[in-house]
């Protein structure tokens, strides 16, 4: 049981890293990034390929952050002049392009067969000790990310990105270029997603393109919507709730044996969807939010 809980906690922390990027991008800056999973996939594949070619895992994780950040620059440059809804479409398309590229670049990624045998973190430790060490490492990185985003949110930089969210034209009128701030915000969120992807690859040890479908992006969106989009604690609380719902609904099956296994997968997503709707109706600012939050 404890192994199961550790596994769930690790996956939750990976979602926290993804959700924190969206808190920064959407909650604070107002950017609608519907392609978050693209940066996650780039991180996962970068670290997996490097370590499969003999590089140490540490190098893989750092490279994952950098590789995920790189496309943030051209995407920002090309599309930040677009209206919000078009930006959402461009990012969604980007993440699908990433998925299709890793599906088809077979000589590198083995396409739909996926990459098995990715190195585990702390592989030299035995069973439980290794699990705890992985959990500790991801927890430390997540706490560092929370500290960093909190620091950004409370700084003059954070003040300005919230000003951009509230009224971009006024920011221009005050002599500041919103585009550069948005590109930086996009890059920071992308780096976090890249790191999350690397941890995911090294934890699951097997990646295929099907793990990087847009649903992952929308799980992260559900997390910040449930938790509260403009609060950092919202990313943490929301990810935890999401994971409890997704995993918890597994056990519902014991009480509802008449539902088939394949139908159960849909029921679980249905439950999350219903909760999301209830949350929007009764608590649009999320669980951690205050009335009047952006």
């Amino acid at each position: 049981m404890s192994a199961y809980l550790i596994a769930i906690t690790i996956l939750t922390l990976i979602y926290v890293l993804l959700a924190l990027g969206l808190t920064l991008q959407f909650g604070l800056t107002g950017l609608i990034n519907f392609g978050h999973v693209g940066f996650f996939a780039i991180g996962a594949y970068t670290s997996a390929l490097l370590t499969l070619n003999g590089w140490p895992v540490g190098v893989g994780i750092v490279a994952a952050a950098v590789a995920a950040m790189l496309p943030a620059l051209p995407i920002g440059y090309i599309s930040l002049r677009l209206r919000d809804d078009y930006f959402a479409i461009v990012t969604l398309a980007f993440s699908e392009v990433v998925r299709i590229v890793v599906t088809n670049a077979r000589e590198w990624t083995s396409g739909t067969q996926g990459l098995p045998g990715i190195a585990r973190l702390y592989a030299s430790l035995n069973g439980a000790a290794s699990e705890w060490a992985v959990l500790g490492t991801i927890l430390a990185v997540t706490l560092l990310a929370i500290w960093m985003i909190t620091r950004i949110a409370r700084s003059p930089f954070g003040r300005l990105i919230q000003a951009i969210r509230d009224n971009e034209v006024a920011v221009k009128a005050l002599g500041k270029d919103p585009a550069w701030f948005k590109i930086q915000v996009l890059a920071v969120g992308a780096a976090l997603a890249g790191i999350a992807g690397a941890f995911y690859a090294h934890y699951i040890t097997y990646i295929v393109p099907d793990q990087f479908v847009p649903l992952v992006t929308f799980y992260a969106w559900m997390a910040i919507t449930l938790g509260g989009a403009s609060r950092i604690s919202g990313a943490v609380v929301g990810s935890a709730i999401l994971m409890v719902l997704l995993e918890g609904s597994r056990f519902v099956h014991d009480f509802l044996p008449m539902i088939s296994d394949s139908a159960m997968a849909s029921v679980r997503i249905g439950v999350v969807g219903l909760l999301l709707i209830l949350c929007i109706v009764w608590r649009p600012q999320g669980l951690t939010g205050k009335r009047g939050d952006a």
Binding site: R151, F157, A163, A170, V171, L174, A294
Partner: peptide, 27 residues
Amino acid sequence: REFGHLTVRENLCAAAPNQTGESLLGL
């Protein structure tokens, strides 16, 4: 075109030019 969710004080501070704290490195 006020920054609605920022306070009056924050609205003014956000307008100040050349802030080191508006660069991530500086921050």
